[in-house]
Design a protein around this nucleic acid. Sequence first.
DNA 1: TTGACAATTGAACAATTGTTCAATTATAAT
DNA 2: ATTATAATTGAACAATTGTTCAATTGTCAA
Lengths: 116, 116
Amino acid sequence: MQNKKTDCTAINPDTVNNTLPKMPDMKLLYELSDFFKVMGDNTRIQLLWALEINKMCVGDLAVLLNMTKSAVSHQLKILRSAKLVKAEKQGKNVYYSLDDDHVKTILEKALEHTNE
Amino acid sequence: MQNKKTDCTAINPDTVNNTLPKMPDMKLLYELSDFFKVMGDNTRIQLLWALEINKMCVGDLAVLLNMTKSAVSHQLKILRSAKLVKAEKQGKNVYYSLDDDHVKTILEKALEHTNE
DNA sequence: TTGACAATTGAACAATTGTTCAATTATAAT
DNA sequence: ATTATAATTGAACAATTGTTCAATTGTCAA
């Protein structure tokens, strides 16, 4: 019941042994933290909330959030690769919208926490 | 209907005008993204999940996650200032546990998203 | 009081991240 | 074909972040 990194020893080895097998797979935990990492940026939260109100194209979002199209596009790419938004091309414009019903639920749950 | 940062113009000014008043306060959005930022780290997700299983002290957590006590302590401090975990001193040890029922709910909701 | 152990703290470092800028692609209109 | 507009892309830069290391604080036992 030791730790490779330090000479640190467990105070309650039983508790550690009880906890270890109940921990989820590392892969799952990485997926979770990667998901939250995507949500953990103010620009992306603004984009998600805006798209929750209306489907919009990059130019509209840039004006709405007072940002450059480039910056918006970069962040939308991250949201898209996380499957949080989807893109739909119409002529010269690309319209973005939420790709996932869970996003709204998670935003609301997170609000319950911060509003305490 | 212009943007100060670029010469960019809205494609659909009506949509932008419709969306703008419906956007939540900037302060609220920052609180939200700050919350997700705290959740968006693999070490902290591991800590939260471990504490969801058992109340533990710093040394136990360090052994469980194979980290130094210092690194664990640093991250616990961040979780504590975000009111996600609470500390309770017992002699030489400090026992940590989840401070918020919502955390578990949010973790589960996030899993629903990543498991698709 | 002294020594040992648990935990915290601050500084330093490497790594990651978000925005800007400039260039490029793609589509529609003339 | 040429021009104009929408969007994307990649490189560069500044800012932020997580871990390590060393030193410190606080508590118990001898």
